[in-house]
């Protein structure tokens, strides 16, 4: 019973971290059809900025998150204008893969050059670092915090996409970009805003999830595949799909690591292959 509870809690919080980071990638793939392998690199930049802000500038945890999200978006703007804009919606998969792998490599090289090859800690505030008593047992507060963050992210995104003017324009661009353009929606602005949103969410996830996915230069490469897999399993562009896929894969991976740690990520990828065969468009994906 203890084990099941631990697996459940760790699995769900791990899944929520995956969700917060991957949902940005998912929205981007749903709208711009860009297989952005550098998404993990943006999450990593967020982590580095937060760590720098807290340890060298003495900022608090909340401020560090804001600095990380805004800083990462600022860093990503020139990349969007110079590089990503060229590959929206039209290029073949291979071009996108190479360009985004290239960007990832450059970011890894520079991160190592600037911050060094060691692990970067993001110290938690006292309110989040201790255990939390939920009546019948103690659980780490940070896990609860991550889960709450994930739920809030999902709700906020749902509100943004389903209930606001921006969301309507975004959905119109996803469904038919040319028609949206003809109707006077500035699709290039929608693309740029979505890119910033995706990168910001990635950075946010990178900071919040740093306890579970530690920040180091090879972060971008190590989890690159994981995020892409979550999006593919969930179906690109679907919030519910990404949430379901993150929780499912988070639980599968955590269960595998608890019960048969020597198999590593075997169960994670086994689950991926099975789901890919049953739902080739993802759990909640739509035909493009």
């Amino acid at each position: 019973m203890q084990t099941i509870l631990s697996i459940g809690l760790d699995g769900i919080s791990y899944g929520m971290v995956l969700f917060i980071i991957s949902i940005g990638l998912s929205i981007m793939m749903g709208l711009m059809r860009v297989v952005n392998l550098a998404h993990g690199a943006f999450a990593m930049i967020g982590g580095y900025l937060a760590s720098y802000a807290m340890r060298d500038l003495g900022a608090g945890y909340a401020l560090a998150i804001v600095v990380a999200v805004i800083g990462t978006i600022i860093i990503s703007i020139p990349l969007e204008i110079l590089l990503y804009r060229r590959i929206y919606r039209k290029s073949d998969a291979l071009t996108q893969l190479l360009l985004t792998i290239g960007i990832t490599f450059v970011i890894i090289g520079l991160a190592n050059f600037i911050f060094g090859p060691t692990l970067k800690a993001i110290p938690l505030p006292n309110a989040l670092s201790g255990p939390l008593d939920i009546g019948f047992r103690m659980i780490p507060t940070h896990r609860v915090f991550v889960i709450v963050c994930g739920v809030i992210t999902a709700l906020a995104l749902w509100l943004l996409i389903d209930k606001t003017e921006f969301g309507i324009r975004l959905r119109a661009s996803v469904d038919n970009s040319d028609m949206a353009d003809s109707l006077g929606i500035r699709t290039e602005w929608i693309y740029a805003a979505t890119f910033a949103l995706a990168v910001g969410l990635g950075a946010f996830g990178g900071v919040v999830g740093a306890e579970l996915l530690p920040i180091e230069p090879f972060y971008a490469l190590r989890y690159m595949v994981t995020f892409l897999v979550v999006v593919s399993v969930g179906g690109a562009g679907s919030i519910a799909g990404a949430l379901a896929a993150s929780l499912l894969l988070g639980l599968a991976d955590t269960t595998g690591k608890y019960l048969a740690p020597e198999y590593g990520e075997f169960f994670f990828y086994l689950a991926v292959i099975v789901i890919a065969f049953l739902f080739p468009r993802g759990l909640f994906g739509r035909a493009h």
């Binding site: 190479l98 360009l99 290239g102 960007i103 450059v106 890894i108 090289g109 050059f113 230069p217």
Partner: peptide, 15 residues
Amino acid sequence: FHWMTLVGLLLIAIV
């Protein structure tokens, strides 16, 4: 690590 940066730049240049 310089190697990674170089390969990355090379890839972007090729694309």
